[in-house]
Design a protein around this nucleic acid. Structure first.
Lengths: 341, 341
DNA sequence: CGAAAACTCCAAAACGTTTCGGATTAAAAA
DNA sequence: TTTTTAATCCGAAACGTTTTGGAGTTTTCG
C-alpha cells in the first residue's frame, strides 16, 4: 500500500503539502497540486481512513443496529426494506454502514453504545427495540451519542425518531371495516412492549368510539407479531366471540396465521370474516386472499432515518421527529357485512 | 473518552503495561493486572479500534458487497437471507460487517477493491456479480485481497467460492417433471451472464438426455430473473409451443410472472401446465398454487461464506470451494400429465 | 556466593493521517 | 528602497494504540 509519505517523496514535497493538496486547501500552488494528483493517480494512492479518522475524529460511518435480524425476518422483509433505505441514503451522502447484530451473548457483555463507541461510528440507527429495553434508558441518558430510533418514541438531546402515523393507520383500517357495515370488530395486536402496538390499539379504540361502537377489551388479543401467535389469537376470537365479523390485525404476518385458523374452523375470508392487516408486506399481495392492509413505507423509513441521523451529525438543526403517513390498500380480505352473518 | 494514557496515569503504570495487561500478556504481575482491569472498568474504558487497527493492520471487519441491494429485492429476500447468514457467523467469530452498496455513480469512480482497501476491511464477500463484470478480472488479478464469491465460480490465489449444486438442482426439477409423465418440457432461464443460469441450463439438458428426450434450444427462454421477464417468457412459450406441458424455471420470482401469463391465457397451473421453480423464496409457499421448487439454503450460503472468508483471513488452509446441496420441494404447481393435454 | 534465569516493568518508535504555527519567497504598496 | 501582504510551503505534534528491545529486581541453581 502506498502511503502519503511515498507520495511526498516521489513528488518532492512535504507530507503536509500532499495532504493539503489532495484535500483541496487553497494554500498550494495549482501546478504543485496537479503534479501531486498525477503521482497519486499513478501510484494508485488511497488514503487510509483509519489514520484519518484517528485524527479528525470523524469516521464517516454509521452503525445500524437491527435487533433480531434473522432468517425468520425473511417472511416480512421489513428489516430488509428499512436497510435498503438506510443504505441508499447513507451511500448517497457518502457514509458507510457498519452492521451490528446483537446476539444474546454479546448483549450481556457489551451494550450497544459501547459497541458503537468502540467501533468509532459517529451515530447509530436502531430498530426493533422494545419500549422497556434497558438500552433505551442508556441512550436517553447518555446524550453524547447521536441515535435515530425507528418506531420508538423517545425524547432526548441527541435523539431522533422516525415512525409512521400508527394511530391514523389503525383508524383507517377500522373505518374501512365500519364502512363495510361491520359492528363487531376484534383486534389482534402485537405485544404490549411495542410502541406501535400501543398506538394502533389507541387508533382502534378512537375510531370505534367515533362511530359510537363500544370498545371492549376482551376483543383485543395479542399475537406477538408472529404468524403462529396470530393464528392462536384468531382461534380464540372465533371460539369466544362468534358475533365478531371483522378483525383488525397489527401485522400482515399475524394475518397469515389468522387465515389458517379461519380455514381450520371452516370459515372463509372474507365471506364469513373480514380481516385487515398492517404493513403491506410482500406476501400480502400474493397470498390468497390478497390482503387488505395498511401500507407502511419501510424503505422510506430507512431512508429518512439515515437522512435525519446525518443531519444531526453534521449539525443541521432540523425537526428531530419524522412521522410518515400510511395508506390503506384495499384488496380481497375484506368485504361488506352479509345479512347471513 | 478515556484513553489508555488515562488508565496508565491513574493506575500508576506505563502505557505499555496497561496494554499488555489488558491484552493478556503474561509478563505482567497478576496483582498489577487486576488493578489495571479494575481501573479500566471504573473508567469505562473502551480501546479505540481505529488506533489499534492502524498498528496491527487487522481491522477485524469484513466487507459485504451486495450488488443491487434495493427494494425490489424484498420480493425474494434472497439477499436478506444471505446477509443474515453472513451476519450470524461473522458476529459469532467477532468480526464486524461493513456494508457496501454499489450505486452506479460510485461504481464508475471507485472499484470495489479500492473501496475495501480504503476502508480497511480485511476481506470481502461478494454476491450478485455477472460473470462478465469487470471487477471479476480485477479480483482475480489482484491476489492481495481475500474475497469470497457467492454463486460465481472463479479460481484464484486469494479467492473462495460458495454456491449450490445447480446442475443437480436442475436435474432434480426436470426428473420430477419427467416422472410425472411430461415429455415436452420448456425452460425459462435467467440470463446468460449468470453462472447459475449456465449451470441450470446444463442440468436441464443433461437430465433430458438421460431420459432420451431431445434438448431443443428453441424451448429455452430467458426471463432475466424478473417477474415480468418470467411472464413474457411464459407468454411466448404458450403461444409458440402448444405442445409444452411443463416448464422448469430458474427462479421462483419468474414463476410468479409465469403464473399470471398462464392465467391470462386461460390456462391453469398445474392442470394445463406444470411449473417447477428455483430458490424456494418465501412467497413460494404462500402464493396460489404453492410452488414446487428447488430449495436453496440462502442462509447457509451466507453462513458458509463468512466462515470461509474468515478461515482464509486467519490462515487456515481449507477447501476454497463450497458447494451446498439443493432439495426438491414438491407442492402444488406440478401434477401428472393428463391425457387431455 | 556468583551467575543465570525468571519476573516485571517501561521508554520510544511506529502506524498514516491532519493540523498548527510558522518560514521562506515573491509581489504589491508605501 | 523599505515595508506589507500574499502565496507557498514545511517541521513537528497529535490522534490512541501495539510492539520492540531492553532494564531493573528477584529468584533459582550450581
Amino acid at each position: 500500500m502506498t502511503t502519503i509519505k511515498d507520495l511526498a517523496r516521489i513528488a518532492g514535497v512535504s507530507v503536509t503539502t500532499v495532504s493539503r493538496a489532495l484535500n483541496g486547501y487553497d494554500d498550494v500552488n495549482e501546478e504543485t497540486r496537479r503534479k501531486i494528483k498525477r503521482v497519486a493517480e499513478e501510484m494508485n494512492y488511497r488514503p487510509n481512513v483509519l489514520a484519518r479518522s484517528l485524527v479528525t475524529k470523524k469516521s464517516r460511518s454509521i452503525g445500524v443496529i437491527l435487533s433480531e435480524i434473522n432468517r425468520a425476518g425473511a417472511k416480512d422483509a421489513m428489516l430488509y426494506e428499512i436497510l435498503c433505505g438506510i443504505n441508499d441514503r447513507a451511500s448517497e451522502l457518502d457514509y458507510d454502514i457498519l452492521l451490528f447484530s446483537t446476539n444474546p451473548k454479546k448483549q450481556l457483555s457489551k451494550s450497544y453504545s459501547d459497541l458503537c463507541k468502540e467501533r468509532n461510528v459517529e451515530g447509530a440507527i436502531i430498530s426493533g427495540l422494545r419500549v422497556n429495553d434497558q438500552y433505551l434508558q442508556e441512550v436517553a441518558v447518555d446524550t453524547s451519542f447521536p441515535c435515530v430510533l425507528i418506531d420508538i418514541p423517545a425524547e432526548g438531546n441527541n435523539l431522533g425518531h422516525v415512525t409512521t402515523d400508527n394511530v391514523q393507520g389503525a383508524r383507517m383500517a377500522v373505518r374501512h371495516l365500519v364502512e363495510l357495515g361491520h359492528r363487531n370488530i376484534a383486534m389482534i395486536n402485537g405485544h404490549n412492549e411495542a410502541s406501535v402496538s400501543q398506538q394502533r390499539l389507541n387508533g382502534y379504540r378512537l375510531e370505534l368510539e367515533k362511530h359510537g361502537l363500544p370498545f371492549r377489551t376482551e376483543l383485543v388479543y395479542n399475537g406477538n407479531f408472529s404468524e403462529e401467535g396470530g393464528g392462536d389469537a384468531m382461534h380464540l376470537i372465533l371460539r369466544n366471540h362468534p358475533e365478531v365479523t371483522a378483525v383488525f390485525t397489527a401485522s400482515d404476518l399475524m394475518v397469515l396465521g389468522a387465515l389458517r385458523a379461519v380455514e381450520r374452523s371452516g370459515g372463509k375470508v372474507p365471506e364469513t370474516i373480514s380481516i385487515v392487516g398492517y404493513d403491506d408486506i410482500v406476501i400480502a399481495s400474493y397470498c390468497s386472499p390478497r390482503l387488505t392492509t395498511v401500507r407502511q413505507d419501510k424503505y422510506e423509513m430507512g431512508y429518512q432515518s439515515a437522512q435525519l441521523l446525518i443531519d444531526m451529525l453534521e449539525g443541521r438543526n432540523i425537526q428531530r421527529k419524522i412521522v410518515l403517513h400510511n395508506e390503506l390498500i384495499v384488496r380481497e380480505s375484506t368485504s361488506p357485512l352479509r345479512k347471513s352473518n
